[in-house]
Every structure is written in C-alpha cells, then in structure tokens.
C-alpha cells in the first residue's frame, strides 16, 4: 500500500505533522525518509490516516458546523476521541502508534489478510467465513463486508465468495487480525497501553458501533479493547443514528467510503 497524498503545504497540515513527529517520532510529511522513524511501515501508514482525519476535523472546527453526535468506524476511533473532546491530538497520535506497533507483533508470526467482499448478503458470507476459518470484521451494509484471517484462508474465502455470486472479492495483506478475537492474545499489553491515558468526559456524545450506546469517559478504555477484538457494525450504527434523528453526516477521513455505505443503506430503507 502506498502512502496517501497529503494536503498541500500551507493548509494547516504542518501543525498536525509536527504534533505527530513529537508524539511518535514519525513525520507524515516525510513518510518514506530512510531512518526518519523506527516505526513499522504499516504503523506509519496508519498514522498518516489518523493525521489526515485530524486535519479534516480541524478544518471542520473552523466552520460553524458543530456536531451533535460523534461516531466512528475502525481507525476512525482516534479522530472521534478528539472530536468529542476525550483526548487531544498528540495523545491520540501516540495512542495510535503504540496500539499499531503492539498489534503488528501478531503479524510477525503469521501472514494475515483482509478480504473485501461486495455483493453477497451476510448469511452466505458467514458460512463462507466459517468454512475458511475467517471472521467477518466489518458489517458495512447488507452487501459490503470485510473478512480477516490468515492469508491463505482469505484467498480461499474470496474464491468461494465469487463462486457463490459475490460481485467482487479482493484480498489484501494486513499486519494484524484487527477486529477479531485473535487480538485477545495480546490483551494484557493493549490494556496496559490504553490505561496509560486519561480520557475526559465526551463534550459531544460519542456513540459506539458495537452496541450503539453513548460512551462515558469510564467506558472508553473498555470500549477501545473490545473494539480491537470485535467486528465493526457500521450499518447498525448508521441506522441507529438515523432513528435518533440525525439527518446530516459529515465524514472525516480519507475518501468517501462511509458516505457511500450510507447511501447504500438509505437506498434500501
């Protein structure tokens, strides 16, 4: 995976990059510079993503659009913690770096992959996942899912998904089995990292994707742990926010994937 295109200089990204360099030793403005950081490439990629989300969040803060509620999807938890006022920019960048480095250790023992499956519904895909010892790790819409597991399992699952009528099935490597129970094998180390931070009470309600409940400051460490070991339930979260009366969604991060998932969910309702 290539490093993403970052904002042009002079638009405020430099401040986020500086914070990232101070907090983690990695400067997103020089992602490929040899010897610039001891961090793994995968962690540097994640930090670029978090830094970009924080940059977009800062831009949003300068508008009149103050959100009534904040939610998140996977790595989006870091920007969400900043958006709701629970952690600061520097702290989440450091937290992302430490968690990313910790979970990447799992990838030293085994090759893992994600499998993006488009077009199948959950029931046949769950069967395919079971057949291949893979896990559904993102429930994005009724027909957009992400699998995770050992590389060979995901390759087999992707082939089986296409045979079963999936519109597309693409496997790509990852360095850790994120959002699977396999993360529980390093739970102690992760809890140690997560408990190193003080989480302030959210000033804006923070709704989690697991149970669609409003998290308190005391809930956040436990949620962060569960989040790493559990699937992301985006469709349920979006539908729940809709029912709560949310009418406008602003996506903060790379691309427009969540907005497109929302469009799909709306088209079925």
């Amino acid at each position: 995976m290539e490093f993403p295109e970052l904002p042009a200089r002079g638009h405020g990204f430099e401040e986020i990059a500086r914070l990232c360099a101070v907090a983690t030793g990695f400067d997103p403005l020089q992602p490929e510079e040899p010897g610039a950081s001891q961090l793994l490439r995968s962690v540097r990629l994640q930090l670029c993503g978090v830094a970009m989300s924080l940059f977009h969040l800062n831009k949003l803060k300068h508008t009149e659009k103050r959100p009534d509620v904040v939610t998140e999807h996977s790595m989006g938890i870091y920007a969400a913690l900043v958006a709701c006022g629970s952690l600061g920019d520097g702290a989440v960048l450091e937290l992302a770096s430490r968690i990313g480095t910790c979970v990447a250790r799992l990838g030293e023992k085994c090759d893992y992959a994600f499998g993006s499956i488009v077009g199948l519904t959950e029931t046949p895909l769950a069967s395919i996942a079971r057949n291949n010892s893979a896990c559904i790790v993102n429930h994005n819409t009724s027909r957009h899912f992400l699998l995770c597991g050992r590389r060979e399992s995901i390759d087999c699952a992707a082939k089986e998904a296409v045979s079963a009528g999936a519109f597309s099935a693409n496997a790509f490597p990852c360095d850790a089995p994120l959002h699977t129970p396999l993360i529980e094998s390093i739970a102690g180390d992760l809890e140690h990292i997560i408990r190193d931070y003080e989480y302030f009470p959210p000033r804006i309600p923070l709704v989690d994707h697991l149970a669609q409940r409003q998290l308190t400051a005391a809930d956040i460490p436990q949620f962060l742990m569960e989040d790493l070991c559990s699937p992301v339930y985006w469709e349920k979260t979006y539908q729940s926010l809709r029912k709560m009366g949310t009418t406008t969604f602003v996506e903060v991060g790379f691309g427009q994937a969540l907005s497109k998932f929302n469009r799909w969910i709306d088209s079925e309702s």
């Binding site: 597309s168 994937a257 469009r263």
Partner: peptide
C-alpha cells in the same frame, strides 16, 4: 468511482 459505486450502478 469505486467498487462501492459499482454495485450501486449494478442495482
């Protein structure tokens, strides 16, 4: 466009 858009167009 991307793969999410593709399925939306298919439907």
């Amino acid at each position: 466009l991307d793969s999410i858009d593709a399925l939306q167009l298919v439907v």
